[in-house]
Amino acid sequence: MPDSETVSNNLKHHFANLEQQTATSKFGMWLFLATEVMFFGGMFVSYLVYRLSYYNAWVAGSQTMEITLGATNTAVLICSSLTMVMAVHFAKLGKRKLTAIFLIATLVLGMTFLGIKGVEYYKHWVHHEVPGPNFHFEHEGNFDPRHVSIFFTLYFAMTGMHALHMVIGVGLLSWLLILNALERFSAEYNSPVEIVGLYWHFVDVIWIYLFPLLYLISHRHTG
């Protein structure tokens, strides 16, 4: 479809022009992300309170984490943020093919993250580190294993909610790829790509904090 049609098809009647509509969409996404800060914030503050209470158990729990996998996943997410920002960049220039290439790259990196996270979850399950009747933690040190269970509860809650956001992000990227293939975007109209980009980067920011808080409390030299 011609580019001018993408504007006339997508401009809602209650907006004066497309610039105003785009600014409003972006503002709406930022507002949603502010509520997401509070959503994750509750878990971050729980983490903080329990960490101050049961620091030694927190260290013991953190030392079971595989830093290599965590660091790799951090790098994967950072790379996916770069590809996302490139997809937005090319969407704004109206280059559909390059937009598609970078959206696919972001999608693949997002799924790589989830795959590595899945490997980690599997290892936690095998090592009886999932809170519940199956939970068992070798007691060696000045801490209560039940407090390590609290660490893992927060670990699974925080990384699990983060992973859910990643799954939703993968869904949104697939949706963008379909719309892009149907030529619904142009240099004039591309705000869906831009606001999904905002969401994707926000999920990256959450992980940027989760990585040091969960993996790097006290480093174990594994050689």
Binding site: K26, F27, W30, A34, V37, M38, G41, F44, V45
Partner: peptide
């Protein structure tokens, strides 16, 4: 938009 971003940080700081 900047106000919203700063508000998000402010309310998290309030919570913590």
């Amino acid at each position: 938009t900047k106000v919203i971003a700063i508000a998000a940080i402010f309310f998290f700081m309030l919570l913590a």
